[in-house]
Each structure stands twice: as structure tokens, then as C-alpha cells.
Simulated scan of single mutants.
Amino acid sequence: MSNQFEQISLKPGFMKHNGGLLFRNISENEYEFKSTINNNHLNAAGITHGGYLSALIDAGAGTAAHRSADNAPCVTISLDIKFIGSSKVNDEIYGKVKILKKTKTLVFLFCELNCNGKIITSASGIWKILKIKTTD
């Protein structure tokens, strides 16, 4: 397992359009991701938009679920987010994901976003592991 952050937003789409996501595996049950806030991520109050933080968690925690499920496709079932603090332009946001439980079909996890040494967002989520049917 490499401990270097790698850009995972390679295909055109929402996260690549929004600046991408750097991701790394820490252990079998722990993962980290990061992103830098730019002007497009701000709300009218000049702080990072909650929708962007939600998308960041969905992408980062979803990637953790995917990797913990032996790279099977995973989709979000639920995501419960608590906004605790704020961030602003040029801030680097770090996400930490802990896989709490994994079954044959579900991944349960907890995620925190940190900025400048403080927790700004926490979330718990459930992902469905998709089993791809092969034809004989």
C-alpha cells in the first residue's frame, strides 16, 4: 500500500470539475483524502459551501468504501453530515475515513473533515456494495 496521496479524479465529471480529490490508503480500515478550497467552492458568506463539503465527503468516503470492498463498485445509501466549523479560500481540507463495519453487501463508516487542525465536518454513512452480474 502506497502512503502517497494520488489524484483519483481522472475521468471528466463532477469531482474533476470541482478541483479533484487526492486520496491515500492508511490501513485496511483507514483512509485519507484532501482538497484545497478555491473561489468556486465558496458560498455567499465567503466560506466553503456545505454542498461542496458534502460532495467532498461523498467522494472521499465513497472511495474508501470502494477500496475496502475489494474495489467493487459502491453507491451511497445514507450520509449523515454535521457541520461544525468553517473553512475559506486556499485552506487545505483533510478527510479521515474509518471503516466501522463491512458485510457482504454494506460498508458502514465514519468520516471527519479537518482544516487548520480543527474538525469542521463529521459524517457517518452507509454504502451498498454492488455485485456485478456476469453472464455465462
Score class of each variant (00 low, 15 high):
Lys96Met: 04
Ser9Ala: 15
Phe108Gln: 07
Lys133Asp: 05
Gly125Asn: 05
Ala44Lys: 01
Trp127Cys: 02
Tyr94Val: 11
Leu21Cys: 11
Cys115Val: 14
Ile8Cys: 03
Ile99Arg: 09
Ala59Asn: 09
Tyr31Phe: 15
Glu6Cys: 08
Ile81His: 12
Ser9Asn: 10
Gly19His: 11
Pro73Glu: 13
Ile119Lys: 14
Lys96Ile: 06
Gly85Ile: 07
Lys11Ala: 12
Ala55Tyr: 02
Asp80Ile: 13
Val89Cys: 10
Thr36Tyr: 02
Asn116Val: 04
Ile37Val: 15
Ser78Leu: 07
Ala72Asn: 15
Lys98Asn: 15
Val89Ala: 12
Glu6Tyr: 10
Glu112His: 09
Glu30Cys: 03
Ile93Arg: 06
Cys111Ala: 15
Lys128Leu: 10
Gly20His: 07
Ile126Ser: 06
Ser2Leu: 14
Ile93Met: 02
Lys34Leu: 03
Ile99Trp: 09
Thr76Glu: 10
Cys74Asp: 12
Ile120Val: 10
Lys96Ala: 05
Ile132Trp: 03
Thr121Glu: 04
Thr76Pro: 03
Ser2Ala: 13
Val75Pro: 09
Gly20Trp: 09
Ile47Cys: 00
Ser68Gly: 02
Gly62Cys: 04
Ala64Asn: 04
Thr121Asn: 00
Asn25Arg: 15
Ile26Cys: 09
Thr63Glu: 14
Phe14Trp: 11
Asn71Val: 12
Ala72Lys: 15
Gly20Asn: 06
Ser54Ala: 14
Asn25Cys: 09
Gln7Ile: 05
Asn116Leu: 13
Ile119Gln: 12
Ala55Pro: 00
Lys11Leu: 12
Ile129His: 01
Tyr52Ile: 07
Glu92His: 01
Asp70Cys: 09
Met15Phe: 05
Asn116Trp: 07
Ile84Tyr: 08
Lys102Met: 10
Lys128Asn: 07
Asp91Cys: 05
Gly50Met: 01
Ser122Cys: 11
Gln7His: 06
Lys88Val: 14
Gly62Phe: 03
Ser27Asp: 10
Trp127Pro: 04
Leu21Trp: 02
His49Thr: 00
Lys34Ser: 01
Leu100Met: 12
Ile119Asn: 12
Thr135Leu: 11
Ala44Tyr: 04
Met1Thr: 13
Arg67Ile: 14
Lys34Val: 00
Glu6Leu: 12
Ile132Pro: 05
Ser87Thr: 13
Ala55Gln: 08
Ile99Gln: 10
Phe5Thr: 08
Lys102Ile: 11
Glu92Asn: 07
Lys16Cys: 02
Tyr52Trp: 11
Gly20Ile: 02
Met1Cys: 11
Asp91Ile: 09
Gly117Ser: 13
Asp58Gly: 03
Gly19Asn: 08
Glu28Arg: 03
Lys82His: 14
Asp58Arg: 06
Asn25Lys: 15
Leu56Ile: 01
Ile57Asn: 04
Trp127Asn: 04
Asn25His: 08
Arg24Asn: 01
Ser86Cys: 02
Asp91Met: 03
Ala55Gly: 11
Val89Gly: 05
Lys96Tyr: 08
Ala64Val: 06
Pro12Ile: 10
Phe5His: 07
Glu30Asp: 07
Gly19Ile: 08
Ser124His: 09
Asn40Gly: 07
Lys16Pro: 00
Lys96Asp: 01
Arg67His: 14
Asn18Gln: 11
